[in-house]
Simulated scan of single mutants.
Amino acid sequence: MIPDSNSYFSVPHHFNVYLTSWDANQALPTDDELRDMQSVGLKLLTEVKSLEANCLLQLRNLDNDAKAVVDFLKLQSRKVDLVLQHVLEKEVQDGELFKGDQFGGSGISIISSRPLVVNEHVKTHIYLHTELVALLCLCQIQSCTPVSTDDATETAYWRCELEFSQILEDDIEQLVKASLNVQQKMLKKRKQNIDKQRS
């Protein structure tokens, strides 16, 4: 079940996406079938992230003296995430590579050198390298709009909007957290730029 598509905001961000056409005669996978479709590396990353989240949640309830321990564990978990992401990136990728330019809890936006088939379902691997997020889901192509450029000699390209049609709840949570993190970084950068201009 996909939550209301208007309930999440999207943030601009560059990332890799691999798309594979989904047979229109085949039903969309259930949550369990989607989990079975994940590679070993993806399953491992998902499991580790889930364990980390539960552990850090329990540690937050400890007193202030535990802050150093929590910070140390966060550092350790980040190291594990980086190693797992590196392993994932070395796996043979299924599908055609596209560049993503926006994401959120409801869907993604990608750049394509050709228009994609609107309403088609695609198996989608999303890799947000800087946010240490990797996931597999099913998306439906909602629209493909040609992007005009100032340079007439430049090849035309399309911005395609993809909406999640089957995605695990944990993965939506990961994307929402990542989008908030990206937004926070953008606001911090903007504030630094304003401070520089003032000084």
Rank of each mutant, 00 (worst) to 15 (best):
V118D: 04
D101K: 13
L44K: 11
S50L: 11
D32K: 15
G107A: 04
F15C: 08
F103N: 05
P29K: 15
D94A: 09
Y127C: 04
P115V: 10
K185T: 10
S50T: 13
F9Y: 10
I2T: 08
T149H: 13
V176N: 06
Q140L: 01
Q58I: 15
S39N: 04
A68F: 12
S148C: 09
S5R: 15
G107L: 07
K185L: 03
L28S: 11
Y18V: 00
D170L: 06
L28M: 06
F98C: 05
T30Y: 06
M37E: 07
R78K: 08
Q174P: 01
D65T: 00
F15A: 07
N61P: 00
N181I: 00
T46D: 13
P146Q: 07
E161K: 10
V11C: 11
P29L: 14
A27H: 01
E89H: 05
R35W: 11
E33P: 03
S179T: 05
L59M: 12
L187K: 03
S50P: 00
K74M: 09
L73N: 06
Q26I: 04
E154W: 10
Q85C: 07
L44F: 02
L97P: 04
P29H: 13
F98W: 06
S179G: 03
E47I: 10
A53M: 11
H14N: 08
K188W: 09
K99F: 13
E131R: 12
K67F: 05
V70E: 11
A68I: 15
E47S: 10
